[in-house]
Amino acid sequence: MALRLAALAGALLAGLITSVCVGDVFVAPEEALLLIAGGTTNLPAPGIADILTQIRLPRTLIATAVGAALAVSGYILQALSRNPLADPYLTGVSSGAGLAVAAAMIIGLDFSLMPASSFLGGLAAALLVAQMARRAGGLSVTRLILGGVAVSAVCGSLITLVITQSGGAPQAQGIIFWLAGGIAGRGWSDLSTLSLYTMGGIIATLLLSKQIRVLSLGDETARALGVEVSRLQWILLACAVLMCGAAVAASGLVAFVGLIAPNLARMLFIRDERVEIIASALLGAVLVTLSDLAARTLGQGQELPLGTLLSLLGGPFFLYLISTSKSEDA
């Protein structure tokens, strides 16, 4: 188990180094590491150092944090719903965030305010869904998912309305690109908020990992075993929303990471929630880092949308999970 975790961490490190070194201009790994460490290098052009430290490095770290945040957010939602097919998008967070960004773009808010708009929109959607799912003694999981689907559908329709009624405004193109998901243009300032929420969320989830296991027995049995079920569900939901909201604010709509990473983690690591949470975060980080690398290097002169690339991977994985699911309800 420790070996597999170490292998995952190694894969992430390799992915990080590759992502920093590979691009329009290739930089040798040893030179990149030297530059990041603050040393002097023999790079041919001085601008390359800026590209590495001000563009590629923060972008790569943002991709890593987005992947980890979405993955652990997905892990929490799957634990809460006791359904491996749950995903951060089922809470309506992403659609709420998308709608807020679309509205902000149309009314011409400054671009620096987009992450805040996205975060608040996501939070509002999640609170609305949580309110719908509220019942005596906790959250109704079925209502949580159905409410999330309904909120997503309404937000999706409103986004389409905003785009079609914008009268061909140039902002509409921006909205469409944001919705497709991507990390282009993000910098160090975006990373600080995102990493704070991601680290906080992962640590809180790890601390609650034993209670997550007891919750797997169902609300009644968990309560009989001393778990304050309602409080635990609210705390876990808050963690999931904070991580997912922060990720959407940084990267737009990136789907399926919260589905793929926790399920792969459960396949690789049997029956230990703590390891599964760490493995989910690492797998999510590797997945988004490599996908972002592919998004900016495989396109013909223009970046591919990150969200689209991940949906191409995630869609078939989702179908695979459905076909192999043991549960009739899943």
């Binding site: 006791r82 359904n83 296991r213 797997s216 027995l217 009644e220 049995t221 009989a224 049997i270 029956r271």
Partner: peptide, 13 residues
């Protein structure tokens, strides 16, 4: 301690 009619877990423990 309470023992329900059907004890199950969503985890494969």
């Amino acid at each position: 301690a309470y023992v329900p009619q059907d004890l199950s877990s969503s985890r494969d423990l």
